[in-house]
Nucleic acid binder design. Structure first.
Lengths: 224, 224
DNA sequence: GTCTATATGGGGATAGAC
DNA sequence: GTCTATCCCCATATAGAC
C-alpha cells in the first residue's frame, strides 16, 4: 500500500449479525440510505430517523445493524472508499503514455466530481467527521491512501505491479493530483462557477505533467 | 472585487441590539466562544450550551444576541473572513518581484495553516455548513472571493490598485494558489504527515510560478 | 430479522425577574 | 443586558412482541 501504514483496527462495533443473505442486503440498504440522506441534507440535518426512512427500514432495524449512529457513518465512509475505484474506471480512456494518462485521469476525475457534486460534499463532510471522531482518524488516512495508491497505479499500469522507482514517483504525482482535485472541489462548491474552475483543471493538468517531467529527470529518464 | 459578484444580503436576523459598548463586546465574546468550542470539538458536538459556557455567558444571553444557532454560526464565519487578512500580514516578507512574492505568500500561508490546524478545520466545517444552509451559500462564495482578492493584491502590490491586466492574471494565480492550499489542508489533516505534505508545498510553489510565467507570456511580458 | 412502542436525555429556544 | 428557570421537541437508543 504505502509508507505511512495504518494500524486499521476494525471498526469498533458494527455488529455484523448472522450475515444472512437478507441481512447483508439490508445492511447495504441502510448504508445507501444514509448516503442518500447525507447527500440531500448534509450532516447538520442527518438523523437516524431520516436514514431509516430513506432506506425503507424502521428505526429499530437500523439499530439492529449498527449499534450507534457513529459506527453507521463510519461504515458509510468505508463504503465510499470501495466505490471509488469502480466509478473512475467507467469513462477513462487509457493512453499508454503516463503523461497522457495523467491528463486523462484528471479530466476523468473532474467529470466524475461534477456529475456527483452532492456525493463529493457528503464525502468531504464524512471525512471531516472522521477526523473529529476519537479513534476514527485512521479512516480518513486510509481513505486518502487508497486514493493515492489507486491514482499511482493508474498513472503507470492498467493495474499491475510497480517498480520501486515508479511507486515513488507515482505516489508523489498522485498526492499532488489529489491536492488539486480536493482544492478544485471546494472552490467549485463555493463559487459554483464552472467556467473559472475549468481553468483550474487545465492548470492542474499542466502542473502535474511538469511534475512528472521533473521527477523523471531527477531519477534518470526512461519512459513508462 | 471580482467577476461573479455576490448579492450579499445582510445576514437575516442577527439582531443587533442597542450596540452599547458592552453589548458589542459581549457579542464578540460569544463569537469567539463559538469558534473556540468549534475548534476543540467540531460541528457534530457543538451546542449552544457549550458555546455559552466557552464564552462565559449564560445560554439566554447568547439568544439575546443571536436569535438562532444558525445565525450565530454564520456570524462566526463572517468573522473568520475578517481575521484572515490580518493574520497573513504578520510574518510575510515582501520581495518586490511577483514571482518571489508568490513563493513567500504560499510559504506564509502554509506556516499559518500549520500553526492554526484546528482553526482551519473549523473554518472548513463552517464553510460546508454554509453551503448546506438555505440562503447562506453566498457567504461561502464571499469568503472565497475575499481570499482571492486578497492574494491577488498581495502578489502585485503592497495593497494598492491594480491594472486590468494584473487583476486578470492575479486572479487566476490566486485561484490556483487557493486550490492548492485547500487541497494541502485536507491532505495534511487526513495524513497528518508533514514531511510528505511539505513536498506538496514545494510543488505548488513551482507550479504557481510557472503559471505566472505562462500567463505573462500569453499577455506580452513585462515585470512587476 | 423486523417490527411497534417507549424510555431517556439533551437540544434550541423562551418567559420573565432583576 | 444578563440572569434563573422552564418549555417542548426531537434525537438516539432500547425493550420486547412477532
Amino acid at each position: 500500500m504505502d509508507d505511512n501504514d495504518q494500524p486499521a483496527p476494525p471498526l469498533p462495533s458494527t455488529r455484523t449479525p448472522g450475515a444472512t443473505r437478507k441481512g447483508v442486503e439490508t445492511r447495504a440498504r441502510i448504508i445507501r440510505g444514509a448516503l442518500e440522506a447525507l447527500e440531500s441534507g448534509g450532516m447538520e440535518t442527518l438523523t437516524t430517523r431520516k436514514i431509516a426512512a430513506s432506506a425503507g427500514v424502521k428505526l429499530a432495524t437500523l439499530h439492529y445493524y449498527f449499534d450507534s449512529k457513529e459506527n453507521l457513518l463510519l461504515a458509510v465512509l468505508e463504503d465510499l472508499i470501495a466505490d471509488m475505484a469502480e466509478a473512475y474506471r467507467q469513462d477513462m480512456s487509457m493512453p499508454s503514455d503516463p503523461e497522457e494518462r495523467i491528463e486523462a485521469l484528471i479530466r476523468s476525475m473532474w467529470r466524475y466530481v461534477q456529475r456527483t457534486r452532492n456525493k463529493q460534499l457528503a464525502q468531504t463532510e464524512l471525512t471531516l467527521y472522521a477526523l473529529r471522531t476519537q479513534g476514527a482518524e485512521w479512516l480518513a488516512a486510509r481513505q486518502y491512501n487508497a486514493y493515492i495508491d489507486f491514482y499511482c497505479r493508474l498513472v503507470f499500469h492498467g493495474m499491475g505491479e510497480l517498480t520501486e522507482e515508479q511507486r515513488k514517483i507515482g505516489t508523489a504525482i498522485a498526492r499532488f493530483m489529489l491536492i488539486g482535485i480536493d482544492g478544485l472541489i471546494l472552490q467549485n462548491f463555493a463559487l459554483h462557477n464552472n467556467g473559472d474552475t475549468n481553468e483550474g483543471v487545465e492548470t492542474l493538468v499542466i502542473a502535474t505533467r511538469d511534475l512528472l517531467h521533473r521527477l523523471r529527470s531527477e531519477a534518470g529518464i526512461q519512459p513508462g
